[in-house]
Simulated scan of single mutants.
Amino acid sequence: MARMHTRRRGSSGSDHPVADEPPEWSDVDAEDVEERVVELAEQGHDPSQIGLKLRDEGVKGTPVPDVKLATDKKVTEILEENDAAPELPEDLRNLFERAIRLREHMEENAQDAQNKRALQNTESKIRRLVNYYRGDALDEDFTYSYDAAKRLLD
């Protein structure tokens, strides 16, 4: 499949090995994993960072290679059940932050054509994601603007 804003295809990412249950060496209780996920979320970590911390640090010293295999729930599902879910989806939040950074750069460097293009591409991706999340994570009447993104992140 081609990239969104280039004519190149790019290399495919790695695939997870097919597994129906967690490995034998990672025998962590599902409740302990859920408690640790909520604890990390309260410390201000994003869902992807929580997965990395569980993989690297683990729960009570035992690494958790895949939260979904250990608990039968995704990290975001665990956060939603415990009312610790972030206000904005992580992918949309990251794009908002990038667009704000690029817009501030463009205010100082109006002649920077490459970053002008990067800002256009980023805002295009944001508009697509806003259409996807409208009604669920965002209001029905939400439309993207620099000021709206700034307001949501503050």
Rank of each mutant, 00 (worst) to 15 (best):
G44C: 01
L40A: 00
V130G: 08
L119N: 05
P17G: 05
S124T: 12
G58S: 00
A84E: 15
R117W: 06
G135W: 01
D83I: 15
T6A: 11
R103W: 12
H45N: 10
A137M: 11
M4W: 05
Q120I: 04
E42Y: 09
I78K: 12
R3D: 07
D46K: 11
R103Y: 08
A118G: 05
V37R: 14
D112E: 03
A137L: 10
L69E: 14
D83P: 15
T122W: 14
K150G: 06
E140I: 09
D66W: 02
R134Q: 13
E21D: 06
R3P: 04
L52G: 03
P86Y: 05
Y132G: 05
F96W: 10
E21W: 01
N121W: 08
R101Y: 14
E97A: 07
K53I: 05
P65D: 12
D20A: 04
E107D: 12
Q120G: 09
L40W: 00
A84F: 04
V64Y: 10
A70R: 13
L119M: 01
Y146S: 08
L92F: 10
P86Q: 13
I50G: 13
L79V: 13
A148K: 07
D32W: 01
V64L: 01
E77L: 13
Q114L: 03
L129C: 01
E24D: 05
N121K: 13
T76N: 13
T62V: 15
N94G: 08
K125Y: 06
R55V: 01
A113L: 02
W25E: 12
P89C: 01
G58T: 00
V33Q: 12
M4F: 08
D66A: 15
D66Y: 08
L129W: 05
S145D: 07
A113K: 09
L88T: 04
Y133L: 12
T71W: 09
R127F: 03
D56A: 08
N131K: 14
R151S: 14
A110M: 02
K74G: 15
Q120P: 04
N82Y: 09
D15H: 06
A85W: 02
E57Y: 10
S11L: 03
Y144F: 12
K53R: 12
I78C: 06
L92W: 10
P89K: 00
D20R: 06
S12V: 04
R151D: 12
D91P: 08
E57P: 01
E123G: 02
D136I: 00
R134H: 04
K125P: 01
S12M: 02
A19F: 05
S11E: 12
E57C: 03
Q43Y: 10
E90F: 00
R101H: 10
Q111T: 04
M106A: 11
R36W: 00
Y146K: 03
A148M: 02
K74A: 10
N121D: 13
N121Q: 13
D32R: 11
